[in-house]
């Protein structure tokens, strides 16, 4: 399927964008968004490359389904930590990122 390959390529680009965002963005809520984009890219690669035969491979589908749920749980935990950090220190950045 050509659409599977196309979306797998989009997933690669999304993963690269997400990694760049996680590394380069210092503000923590936006870094969480970059983390989510990274996860979406990985999911697209998994499912896009599973579309080879007539029937899609069900194992990557199950893994991606689990991964989406884990990603939202991780996002909720990270947001709770960011809110706590902001309440305690009034900042939205990690201490080692303050310098630059």
């Amino acid at each position: 399927m050509t659409s599977g390959l196309l979306f797998a390529l989009v997933g690669v680009a999304l993963f690269a964008l997400g990694v760049a965002g996680v590394v380069l963005i210092a503000q923590l809520p936006r870094r969480i968004l970059a983390f989510n984009l990274m996860g979406s890219g990985a999911f697209l690669v998994l499912v896009g490359l599973a579309q080879r035969g007539d029937l899609p491979d069900p194992v990557p589908h199950a893994m991606v389904l689990t991964g989406i749920v884990v990603a939202v749980a991780a996002t909720a935990l990270a947001l709770a930590l960011v809110r706590r950090l902001h309440a305690l220190t009034g900042r939205l950045q990690l201490p080692e990122d303050d310098g630059d």
């Binding site: 989009v10 999911f43 899609p56 991606v64």
Partner: peptide
């Protein structure tokens, strides 16, 4: 919409 295009309605 992309998941529907990839024929994965569960995801």
């Amino acid at each position: 919409i992309a998941w529907i295009r990839l024929s994965a309605p569960d995801i």
